Simulated assay, not measured.
Amino acid sequence: MHRKYRQPVLLLAASIVAGTVAWSGNALSLPIALMFPVLWALARTRLTTACVSAGYFLAASRGLPQGVATFYASDLRPGLALWLCASLGFVGVHTMLWTRCERARALRYLAAASLMAIPPFGIIGWAHPITAAGVLFPGWGWWGLLATTAGFMGLVTRMWPAVAMMLSGFWLWSAAFWTDPTLPETWRGVDLELGASLGRDISMIRHRDLIATVMAQASRGARTIVLPESALGFWTPTVERLWVQALQETDLTVVAGAAIVDARGYDNVLVALSGGGARMLYRERMPVPGSMWQPWRPLLGQSGGARAHFFANPVVDLTGERVAPLICYEQLVVWPVLQSMLDDPDLILAVGNGWWTKGTSIVAIQRASAQAWARLFGKPLVISFNT
């Protein structure tokens, strides 16, 4: 291979490896994402930077084409189109802010990382290396976030070998003593394997089956039981009455996903149910762009799609505890969890409906991300997924 092309090809290959391994669904592999700032800084041209950025992002989000094809019951073409379009923000930001000037490089990378962490670019800010902070510095909270950010800035300078060795030391220490986030004693997150029928089968039989599942968890000592996203389907007065009556002779609280629909669209929500009644607990801040959140519809005079409540209800009160809910896609981007942590909640609640991700690592990545954030801030974690 000609020397002119050798370095770009090696950087591209390394970026693909970094994206693939870091985002494999194992929380302890997340620090491998810190290879990306090094590769970004080693690029000698803006074109190489674009290739490195694309290689990392596309490898990290490799499950998207298959997941979209499953969701829409179609071939891979729509998924491939969405996969490539989603990469444009990440690639564009990192390519535009790349510079040959070493003195400016650290601040340029800090700007790129910041843009990909907050809206509007943060809306598609998947695979953000800052997620590794929870593995490198568990329990450090905001100081761990600051230390990881400082590590980013060091990795794009000539000092990167020393910085990489230091971060590797923290990584090895954390891996040696790693423990999963704790689960609150009386809380239970229920994982279901009901596939695409969850939320679509709205029969009384399905609801009674879910109620039976809740009662089985209660018999094991649980008092707050969490069901996945979309578990209740469409939220109606009939569904509310059924569940409230079933819980009337108990001291249980059930948190479950549902959809509240009106003429303009719908809200993806969590509902809290008990024998005393039901209330809307949380409205999703960031539904999945494209398949759920479709902001172009109002511009075209159309209705439909999920509403995004970007900075609403970061923390909610439930059974005397302050809870930070994260529904599905919110576990893959940075800003929802950081917004919630500003209010110092008592625990993190992560739910999802990942039936469409079968055969991919998307649900495993969501779990790993939630675990990393919970460990960073030292918060208990309750997880409930349907697959």
Rank of each mutant, 00 (worst) to 15 (best):
V337Q: 01
Q339I: 00
W356N: 02
M341Y: 11
I365H: 09
G359V: 07
A364Y: 00
D344V: 12
G359L: 00
A370M: 06
W355R: 01
A364K: 12
Q339H: 14
A350E: 05
K358I: 07
G352S: 02
G359A: 00
I348L: 12
K358T: 10
A350D: 09
G359F: 05
A370E: 02
T360Y: 01
A370L: 07
W355D: 04
W373M: 11
V363F: 11
W355G: 07
K358W: 06
I362A: 03
I365R: 12
T357M: 04
A370W: 08
D344K: 14
D344I: 10
R375L: 10
T357S: 05
L347P: 07
A350H: 07
V337K: 03
D343Y: 13
P345V: 04
S369H: 14
S361E: 14
K358C: 00
L349N: 03
I362V: 11
Q339F: 05
A350G: 05
T357E: 03
L338W: 11
S369C: 12
A368R: 01
Q371T: 15
W373R: 06
A370Y: 09
S340T: 08
T357Y: 03
L342Q: 13
L338T: 15
I365P: 01
S361K: 15
L338A: 09
G359H: 04
R367Y: 09
V363H: 04
M341L: 15
S361V: 15
R375G: 03
D344S: 15
P345F: 09
V337W: 03
S340R: 10
S369D: 12
P345H: 06
D346N: 12
A350N: 08
G359C: 06
V363G: 01
D346H: 10
S340Q: 08
A370F: 08
L349R: 02
G352A: 01
Q371R: 15
W355P: 01
T360R: 04
D346F: 03
L349K: 00
D344N: 14
A368D: 05
Q366P: 00
G359S: 02
S361R: 15
V337S: 05
A374E: 06
S361G: 10
Q371K: 15
A370K: 01
W355C: 02
R367N: 12
M341A: 12
Q371M: 15
G352R: 01
G359I: 07
V337C: 03
T360F: 01
A364N: 12
D344E: 15
S369E: 13
V351Y: 02
G352D: 06
A374R: 11
L338F: 08
R375N: 11
A374H: 12
I348F: 02
D343R: 12
P345M: 10
V363N: 08
S340C: 08
A364D: 13
A370T: 08
A372C: 13
G352P: 00
D343Q: 14
G352V: 00
Q339K: 11
V351G: 05
K358P: 00
Q366D: 12
T360I: 05
L347Y: 05
S369A: 14
V363D: 09
V337I: 14
